[in-house]
């Protein structure tokens, strides 16, 4: 039941091209839409969630040009030519990314609704700072609300992923 609805032609008055999870995609959409809306409604990437649409919860976080941002507060019109990474872009060749693996192993995800935003935020952190301190992790994730875990198992997950990423990088499994 995940078919993407095809909007009527009249709605699609804007057009951009973005690199979505490494793949160039063209998308036509109603021009009032945010990045969140085109990802979910026009590109079928429903892994990006929303919890408020006002920038107050972090559920819709994606990585835009290397930085975690809230897709509900970015106009799609401003994304032409930019690089977007969503949760769908993390696993490669069917293998979970070490952060996903750690969240799965260590209770980092309960209801799962904050999880995509949380994982992408953690990824952006580790891309920039491969060995963050505990405080840096707490701070980096402070824009992602979670109502299930109390965050501690999320911190565990990020910390466990750090070692895994180093290991996989050493063996060349991860670039």
């Amino acid at each position: 039941m995940t078919q993407t609805r095809l909007p009527a032609e009249s709605e699609k008055t804007a057009h951009i091209r973005i690199a979505l999870n490494g793949e160039e995609v063209d998308v036509s959409f109603a021009p009032y839409k945010t990045l969140l809306e085109i990802l979910r409604e026009d590109l079928g990437h429903t892994g990006t969630k929303h919890g408020c649409e006002l920038g107050e919860c972090g559920a819709c976080a994606v990585i835009l040009d290397g930085e975690p941002v809230l897709s509900c507060l970015v106009l799609a019109l401003e994304c032409d030519g930019r690089n977007v990474i969503t949760i769908e872009g993390l696993a490669s060749n069917g293998e979970l990314h070490p952060i996903q693996e750690a969240f799965a192993n260590l209770g980092g995800s309960q209801c799962g609704y904050c999880t995509p935003g949380m994982i992408l935020t953690a990824k952006a952190l580790l891309d920039r700072t491969p060995h963050p301190s505990h405080d840096q992790i707490r701070e980096a994730l402070s824009g992602n609300l979670c109502r299930c875990t109390g965050y501690l198992q999320i911190f565990d997950s990020v910390e466990a992923a750090i070692a895994q990423i180093s290991e996989r990088k050493r063996t060349g499994e991860l670039k």
Partner: peptide, 19 residues
């Protein structure tokens, strides 16, 4: 159920879209 949650594959009600 965790794999669906960490990959974004879990379908919540708002993820459903029909013709």
């Amino acid at each position: 159920d965790v794999r669906g949650k960490v990959t974004g594959q879990t379908i919540y009600a708002d993820d459903i879209s029909l013709p």
